[in-house]
Design a binder for these strands. Sequence first.
DNA 1: ACAAAAATGATTCACTTGTTGCAAACCTTG
DNA 2: CAAGGTTTGCAACAAGTGAATCATTTTTGT
Lengths: 295, 295
Amino acid sequence: MPQRDPLREQIIAQYDAMSPQLQQAARYVLEHPDEVALVSMRELARHAAVQPATMTRLAKFLGKQGYDDIREHYVAALRRGNDGFAAKVRQRTEGATAAANDTIAAHMLHGLSAQISQLCEPDSLQRLEAIANTLKSARKVYVLGLRSCHSVAWHFHYVMSLLGDRSVHLEGPAGTGGDRLIRAMPDDVMLVVSVKPYAVATLELTQLAKDKGLTILSITDSEVSPLVGLSDQTIFCPTESDSFFHTLTPALAISEVLCTLLAEDDRPQALDALQRADEHFLSLNTYASAIPRRE
Amino acid sequence: MPQRDPLREQIIAQYDAMSPQLQQAARYVLEHPDEVALVSMRELARHAAVQPATMTRLAKFLGKQGYDDIREHYVAALRRGNDGFAAKVRQRTEGATAAANDTIAAHMLHGLSAQISQLCEPDSLQRLEAIANTLKSARKVYVLGLRSCHSVAWHFHYVMSLLGDRSVHLEGPAGTGGDRLIRAMPDDVMLVVSVKPYAVATLELTQLAKDKGLTILSITDSEVSPLVGLSDQTIFCPTESDSFFHTLTPALAISEVLCTLLAEDDRPQALDALQRADEHFLSLNTYASAIPRRE
DNA sequence: ACAAAAATGATTCACTTGTTGCAAACCTTG
DNA sequence: CAAGGTTTGCAACAAGTGAATCATTTTTGT
């Protein structure tokens, strides 16, 4: 793990030119980089058996403005190391990261990319598989996503509707969206998407479905989301963004993965269903040209 | 990687019993455990959009002596996490580089992450900025996205509608979606989203708008998309996926970036508009709890 | 050996930190 | 709608922070 650490290298390079006390301080910093980030300067000095002022002097000696510059360096390093994904993104787009990091757009896209790769953690993958399994055996799947989450819910429903007629989108004009639940049965499943702030209507409809005995699956943004308590299974999507708004991109990614897992479960049937859909669209002239399907 | 974290679990367990402010603080702590260790309480409170005192109160609520108890917990966790380097790195690289071998889900998520980070290329960024600039000075923005692209178009429109009333979604029951173009003027702009296969209706409506003199901006999937010829400016979104279906996640990411650029262009006005939206939702009891806005 | 220069320690200062007490604002619940 | 308790924001606080200053010691060159 060859983490490039310019400050560390600088300290080593200038070590011989330091006074004894400075060396002692510098040595402690080299050997306990985490401490620098986690502990006050005075405490660090105490541990290094050095005067507090020596740390300040070390910073100046290294050409920094003050001790805080040193600390910030190690804080940043620690952050990077722990978030983990940074390394990967950096690796993938070395040039772009360094060059275009200053624009809002580039920064945001990097963040999104990282958030999605976070979903590769074992816990998330397990939840995805589990939810997909539940969906597989459902008689009907009622899909609910209001307001900002409408996009995710609708997209899931749209794809599912290409594969069969098990999906029911809880959406309708004049507030009739919930009506589709009238004939819901305990064998059915509800997939609900909601992130903060949670729409009251979403929670109410979910509660109703739960009361009816449906299995509740949810895509939401936190362990403490009100949906967690209502749901049998949950998968979490990051929503944080540099902008004013939450991002729904990771949630959409989750939804697409679920669709894929479902289709992949019975490939022949999925291909068959898509074939039929293609014919339908063809006869209706829905699309501008034939629909190429791979393989 | 199920890191056992008793404090985290305690917070989750007691979350429902907390007051709103306490919940907001607790939530931020849950979502940013590293920050707790690395920054001062006041700064943490600032990031969480909470009063400093609330953090102290959170500690007391959890039965701790003071905030420092919480911090020390996360400091210890961070220390541990960094010592177990070898294991961690191994795990990380497994999740990142070698994800290909694993499950379908992991592979797919990995691909999505890569596709989005591809959008950081200078050409894409330039196109994004250019489109954002055009959108900024538009009188009205008509948003069109049919079938699978509905999710992207709608999400863009939804966010824009929070910021003002310039956005018009070309969508309506019984095929009336195009009617909104009746009063479109040459000063207006149309943002159209479409990927292969291209819906005929999308192309027709776009052509109509073009004939009316509107500026056409498009989010589409290829240089050879039929939209390219109809559009004044275009940004390309990758849509390839391992599954049967195209992915719209990168397209949604693009849409979110555009929204952010627009909001960021006039921060004060955006904040103002969001403030007004919050009040509206509050008086309608749309959401389950107050909407926290950072800074 | 003895100035001159460098390094170190002690003291102090301006500032931030985490905490607390209090009053205004906010629900509840009779 | 009014009394009650809870929640929240604000202002003040003592303690601790990093930095600056100056006196003292140590080192160095001749």
